[in-house]
Design a protein around this nucleic acid. Sequence first.
DNA 1: CGCGAGCTTGACGTTGTTCAACTAGAGTGG
DNA 2: CCACTCTAGTTGAACAACGTCAAGCTCGCG
Lengths: 230, 230
Amino acid sequence: MAVLLDTKCLVCKKSSDIFNVLKESELEKIDCNKASIIYKPGEIIFKQGAPANYFVCVTSGLVKLYIEHVNSRNLIVGLTRPINYIFEPGPFVDHHHHVTAVACEETSACLIDEKVMKQLIKTNTEFANEFIKKISLQSVSLFNRISSCTQKHVYGRVADTLLYLYPGIYNTNPFLLSLTRQDLADLSGMTKESLIRVLKKFKDDNIINIEGNKLEIINRNNLEEIARKG
Amino acid sequence: MAVLLDTKCLVCKKSSDIFNVLKESELEKIDCNKASIIYKPGEIIFKQGAPANYFVCVTSGLVKLYIEHVNSRNLIVGLTRPINYIFEPGPFVDHHHHVTAVACEETSACLIDEKVMKQLIKTNTEFANEFIKKISLQSVSLFNRISSCTQKHVYGRVADTLLYLYPGIYNTNPFLLSLTRQDLADLSGMTKESLIRVLKKFKDDNIINIEGNKLEIINRNNLEEIARKG
DNA sequence: CGCGAGCTTGACGTTGTTCAACTAGAGTGG
DNA sequence: CCACTCTAGTTGAACAACGTCAAGCTCGCG
């Protein structure tokens, strides 16, 4: 299912804010207690409900995090691009995962022993502080998501999704989607049929251009307007 | 608008887990940098978008936290009962509030200088750890809320709301609601008309009994079943 | 007694889902 | 190299869920 890699944490330190506050000796401690793994698109990194024994740090690729719901569709609560931890409340609550993480592209990730991370939080207050900041940022993004999915109509929700994708997840325009239509629907809290109809409307209105997986945002202002009005 | 109180933090330490890890000297520091205030029902404690210069600890009463949305209804993302901090991501992100907090009953709260709290987080690792735990718990509850509001039909959502209210917010059965029908609707992500219709259905089906503000949960199993099925 | 806020009910319309059929492209095996 | 199957994407029609609007009710309070 997965292939082992061998990279040093020092490499990540350079591109991730949360690692910056760690000393070299602390990074080495992580180095000794981690596994680097490559996942193929569609492979599960961890599953909602399963025990959470380690923290996951995405080092390349793209990961979707979604809440599974029996007899119903999934809801994507976030996408994680490297280099970033997957900030999941589970390890601090009941040691179980509360979302499922799946690779959308070929993805490499480091699995770091929970004990080591918790130890670092207890000994390095700067690190704890950065950690709290990151969790807080995630809460804000959850607020936005909740607010979008419960208060806005399909057009506003898709607009929110597109604005979330570029910039942030994809950083060229036009960009090549590695997410399926179903993923986009799960991100917007609707069925894929509805999503497709909205995208078509946006294309007809010259707000975006989409052909296959190539998506271009033509009129960003218009999208923001739609997102605001709901 | 509000009346000053004078109580010591030592009193709160006895009933709140997060205070337990603080030394007396640390509690005294909070004592010197806080304001105790009484709010009447309906009064705003802080407002979404306003600067967040202090942390709020609810010491009696009931507080609702909601996301405001222009030209649309509000969404209650949580209720806070004493003794508990209002865990808001704002202070760690952009120093602005991301929700509005309003007293539902006569409520007393301590406003604690942001700097003091952040200082404690940096110096007392146990406290930081408890803090992370609390934020994580809140994330989990946000996941539940998001999942309920986007995936379930009105009946499932109201069932979730009732199960959230008792036990947890109200701890007798039957209990006297201090929330209005509109509040219940905002908690369930629907209009008050829809909420009322669902409550009536539940009453007709002998799942609950409701007369005015007196609400009794008669068949909890049935409610859980409905919440599960959506 | 009259007013107003919160609550309740019914009729109606809109939004978005469901279901089913169809298309296009990629992978497989004869 | 061509049928085949399988998956992702697309489209249309019918339907259900829920919101909107409007009217009437109840109860506490001046």
